[in-house]
Structures are given as structure tokens and as C-alpha cells.
Amino acid sequence: MAIKTAPRPNLRWTDYLYLPSILKGLKITFSYFAKTLLRKNLYTMEFPEQKWMFPKRYRGYPMLVQGDNGVENCVACKLCEVVCPPSAITIRIGHYNNPEVKERIPAEFIIDMGRCIVCGMCEEACPCEAIVMSNAHVMSSGSRSGLIFKKTLLLDDYHQIPTMRD
């Protein structure tokens, strides 16, 4: 293949100074700075106090669903546990006290959010629509153990954030 040499641009001495380009860039920066100072067209937000609005189908961290009868939908079939790629889910099977309503519930349902990769495979595997991806996207804690979420916390809509359509 033939080698094609690109022609170098013909630069003047002012171009070699670089100063006009720098000033041109700074003009944009300072114009935005002035706009922010005057509270026009904000481009950042005060994050922990203010939250970003996500579309409803946004895939965040998983949560458990409570059924109409007040019991969680989960029957501890352990399919999410086996399908979970980083093994973030741990389930211990338990008996529900009223077998007429439901025979089997998870006695323990733990998701290690530090391991969760938010892939959504648990939601896909679930035969009972018991685990769904919420739109929670912020997980932070001072310790690793703080990221281990137990059943009560997963059932709670602690991390439900108002969505755009709400």
C-alpha cells in the first residue's frame, strides 16, 4: 500500500504563540462561570440533597416485592441464588406459619450489595416476580457489612426514588 503524506498546515507566527486559542477557550469557560454565578442554566447539582430523575425502566439495585397478602412474593426457590454471577445472594428456606396462605418463604434473604453487579439476572430467573430491579443506583456505606442487605431492608422501599414518570 502506498504511503500518503498528509500536508502540514501553514501556520503563521500568531498561531505559534497559542495565546489566541487559550483566550478563545477561556472565553467559553468564563461565560459558563458567569451563567452559574447568576443561576442561569445549571449544569451540576447538589448531589446528596438533590437527586437525578431516572426513567422508570432504569435498572438499579435489586429489591424484593411484597404481595397483596402482606407476605413477600418470594418462595425461596433459590433460582436467583444459583443464577447470580457474583454469588451475591444468600437464601435460607423457611416455613411460613400459615400453610394455607403460603408454604414456603425465605427465612433469610441476603444480598451483598458490595458484590452485586446489577446485571438483572435474578429478576429474569425469578418465577414469582419476587425480586425486581429498583431504580436505586447509589450504594455507599462506611463499612462492608453496611452493604449486606437483609430481607426487611430489601422489602422496604427505602431506595425508591421518584422517577420521571411519577
Binding site: C77, K78, V82, I93, G94, E103
Partner: peptide, 8 residues
């Protein structure tokens, strides 16, 4: 009963 699943 309700102890484990076979694949475990």
C-alpha cells in the same frame, strides 16, 4: 422438606 435444592 424445604432444606435445600438438588443443585446445591
Amino acid at each position: 422438606r424445604f432444606k435445600a435444592r438438588p443443585w446445591e
